[in-house]
């Protein structure tokens, strides 16, 4: 069983670990050895598979932030606070991956790592929001930081869907971020398959990190 208290990994944790490891390996294999080169961009386009996966993983982590914040305010269970701490850090890490892979791609495609385009700006803002949450965790009052983080977590997480949704309402002309899936840009069926595997691998990886980080936090607080 999944167990927070044991310092050793349980069977389920080992399975999660093996599954993630296998999926990430398989995704790498698909991305670098199976999928054909994209016509215009060439090999750089392959970073897209990690980029999209990391973005999905960020959304999942933010979902965990919202749920654990609400659960903490309702129940005041320590575990929820530990989960919130981990989810914030994991979301921040994956948000960084999205930004960095995006910048590498942008440098090749647009000749500049960053353009002031709604979707890019929205992720940058997301990064800053998560940074604010990490800073609160680092400098907050020890007794109240859990409850304060939960409040900030809720107000931050409800931001995300609205910001993401409002971008879709903007006129197409102002957007240069590629809309690969909506615009049916994935002609070759192997593109779709690779993208799906990449996404699932990243999401599994996210949950694995989340679990391990929560476990570390629990052990840390027990040993204190």
């Amino acid at each position: 069983m999944l167990s927070l208290n044991s310092k050793k990994l349980s069977i389920v944790e080992n399975v999660l670990f093996a599954l993630t490891f296998g999926l990430v390996l398989y995704a790498n294999y698909l991305v670098f050895l199976v999928v054909p080169n994209e016509k215009v961009m060439g090999p750089v386009q392959r970073i897209f598979y990690f980029h999209v996966g990391a973005a999905m993983a960020t959304y999942f982590a933010i979902g965990v932030i919202l749920l654990s914040s609400l659960a903490y305010l309702a129940t005041r269970k320590k575990f929820m606070d530990q989960l919130l701490t981990s989810a914030t850090e994991v979301a921040f890490a994956f948000c960084c991956i999205v930004m960095i892979t995006g910048m590498i791609w942008g440098n090749a495609a647009w000749n500049t790592p960053f353009r002031w385009e709604p979707r890019l700006v929205s992720f940058l803002v997301l990064l800053l929001i998560l940074l604010g949450m990490l800073l609160l965790r680092a400098f907050g009052d020890k007794e109240k930081v859990a409850i304060h983080s939960a409040v900030l977590g809720i107000i931050s997480a409800i931001n995300v869907p609205i910001v993401v949704f409002s971008i879709k309402l903007l006129p197409k002309a102002t957007q240069i971020h590629p809309q690969v899936v909506q615009d049916r840009g994935l002609r070759d069926p192997s593109f779709v398959y690779t993208m799906l595997i990449g996404m699932i691998a990243m999401i599994c990886f996210q949950f694995l990190l989340l679990w391990v980080r929560t476990k570390i936090e629990t052990v840390k607080q027990q040993d204190r």
């Binding site: 940074l131 604010g132 800073l135 907050g140 609205i162």
Partner: peptide, 18 residues
């Protein structure tokens, strides 16, 4: 917090972007 009033811009401004 330990930063007193100075933490406010750090957590407020990102949320103000929209």
């Amino acid at each position: 917090s330990r930063l007193k009033g100075l933490l406010l811009p750090l957590i407020l401004l990102p949320l103000l972007f929209p």
